[in-house]
């Protein structure tokens, strides 16, 4: 458990400690499953409301307006749409558990293959911007804390405050204006290739979407990195490390940086909803062919299966992010009580 230097010994025997963590993780997993069921329930309820508001709405959209009543009836029966909400929901969940995500009628393609095509691009966009934003936020946050109330701190705070107050599309628009319209350095449209590898063949088109999302995530991280580093700097073990004559470089590296990384684990987990909202907007602005743009199209085209699948998928990712934040925090920081 001695991953974090400078923390006091956790109480109790090591075995008991591990036992407590296991119990905590199991309890937390149980909660996550409850939350996931809630998310699917709400997502399906919305679809159910849509169908209840104007009868046979789903059937009419998918079978087109020329469908005759017998065809609609047959469609409803085949898809359990004439049954009670809980039967419908049960049917949906049973399919979901077996990973049968249905067919996108708009693309005439299974939702699974559609997502298999798009998610790698999202992982590329999200992963790159996550790495870049952390590479900026961690050192800058520490520098701001160490040089508190100096120029670095003021500039950093001003930048992160401005970014935080800007809607994601505003960041994107300003970047397009500067780097694409005023100076023709990067194109304002993301590469439209088939696989995610083909996107990498046109890296210049990736620059603006990735930089925009990096700034969105940086705005989120920077708010917490500085105050977390300040909190760490005020700890007794930092004073002890300095008092025993450890060079300042090592104090920062061994004690401050490593302790700040505990915060990063939590922050990355909790930032997921913000990043997903950002991704949706960035994809919209740059016409980036990912799941966010797909969701947006799906809603305008009433592509129900895609809407449901992406809502549930995002719910799962968010819940996993929260889980990672809590468990990571509990494992990395022995001071946390369960």
């Amino acid at each position: 458990m001695n991953l974090v230097p400078g923390n006091c010994q956790a109480p109790g025997e090591p075995g008991q400690e591990r036992h407590l963590i296991t119990g905590f993780i199991i309890r937390r997993l149980g909660q996550s499953i409850v939350v996931l069921i809630g998310v699917t329930l709400i997502a399906y309820l919305l679809l159910y409301l849509l169908n209840a508001q104007s009868p046979n709405y789903i059937a009419r959209v998918i079978l087109t307006s020329r469908a005759l009543p017998p065809a609609i009836k047959q469609f409803n029966q085949a898809n359990f749409l004439n049954r009670s909400f809980f039967v419908q929901y049960g049917h949906f969940m049973w399919n979901l558990v077996r990973l049968r995500l249905g067919t996108s009628y708009f693309h005439s393609q299974s939702v699974k293959s559609l997502l298999a095509n798009e998610l790698p691009r999202d992982i590329l966009l999200g992963g790159l911007s996550l790495i870049f934003s952390l590479l900026i936020a961690i050192p800058l946050g520490i520098a701001q804390a160490v040089k508190r109330n100096k120029t670095v701190d003021y500039v950093g705070t001003a930048v992160s405050f401005s970014l935080y107050s800007m809607p994601p599309y505003a960041i994107a628009i300003i970047l397009i204006q500067l780097l694409s319209i005023s100076f023709h350095i990067f194109p304002a449209e993301a590469p439209q290739g088939q696989g995610w590898l083909s996107m990498l063949e046109h890296p210049s088109g990736l620059v603006l979407p990735v930089v925009s999302l990096t700034l969105v995530s940086y705005a989120y991280f920077s708010r917490y990195m500085r105050s977390s580093a300040l909190d760490t700097l005020a700890q007794d073990y930092i004073r002890t490390a300095r008092a025993k004559g450890l060079p300042e470089r090592l104090v920062l590296w061994r004690h401050l940086l490593k302790n700040s990384l505990v915060t990063v684990v939590t922050l990355v987990g909790l930032s997921i909803p913000t990043v997903i909202t950002g991704t949706l907007i960035i994809e919209q602005v740059f016409n980036f062919p990912g799941a966010g743009l797909e969701y947006y199209l799906a809603v305008t085209q009433n592509d129900f299966q895609v809407m449901l699948a992406i809502t549930v998928l995002v719910g799962i990712i968010t819940v996993l992010g929260n889980l990672m934040a809590d468990i990571g925090y509990a494992i990395l920081d022995p001071r946390v009580r369960y």
């Binding site: 939350v35 809630g38 998310v39 709400i42 909803p273 969701y295 809502t311 719910g315």
Partner: peptide, 10 residues
């Protein structure tokens, strides 16, 4: 938790 797990904009 359930409410927060559903992304607002979606």
């Amino acid at each position: 938790d359930i409410g927060l797990a559903i992304p607002i904009v979606l």
